[in-house]
Amino acid sequence: MLSSLPGHRHLIRELVARDIRSRYVGSVAGLFWSILNPALQLALYTLVFSLVLEVRFGTEASTGVFALNLFAALLPWMAIQEGVVRSARTFIENANIIKKQRFPLETLPFSVLVSAVVHQLLGTAVFLVVLAVAQLGDFRFLVLIFPLFAVQILMTYGLAALAASLNVFFRDVAQLLGVLFMLFFWVTPIVYPRSRAPEPYQFLLSLNPLTHMVEAYRFAFLGAPEPSVWGLLYWGVLSLGFYRLGRFVLDRTRNQLVDLL
């Protein structure tokens, strides 16, 4: 299914451009809103967790270090969430176009994912500038972000295709995703380090594949602590599994799916 995507590159470019434009068309502040939301989340979580609850990453009780660790994890998290949650509705929102001609369905969740990744890349660029200025980054393993992006995209695409197809049959899927993402936000060590969790819960956290992804991104941008290689392998294998599952469900349902739109 991914292999069919290059043939539709012009369509995907149109879809992504359309998606990004449609978010800002008719709004006065435009791009400002897509920066405000993550910036506000970053500020609020830093305020509550670092200043009020005194959560710390590493040994230093520095608010700046906390904010950077949070930022490193929040960027991929938000891209995944946005890619999957918005994909769930993409077939329904584009029913008018899908039903009027031959349409390669896989391009829709993929273009939603691309537009989320574009925002993630913008955020990452800002993040790198902040790290360089604050001199808190550790860029020795920065090259790791490329395979990390690749696996993250593979996983998001699988989940997005799955959510998009299933939501046509059960409109509850979009609702369910909201709940699931809230749950996973807190059981992934995003606003706290895994080491802060009590012993039995640390094991549970390690079952969550996103734990390993988040720790790997922190490692790539900020240096220590080193992520577990087995954990990353686990995340990689699960991502491939999600991709295969999403692709299977979309391929099996694509013919009937259009009749329900």
Binding site: R18, S22, Q101
Partner: peptide
């Protein structure tokens, strides 16, 4: 045709061409 109502006629022409 399957047009997107929020986009202009020209944008919809380009989109259909890409499709």
């Amino acid at each position: 045709a399957g047009f997107h109502p929020e986009f202009s006629g020209r944008e919809n022409i380009r989109f259909t061409g890409a499709l």
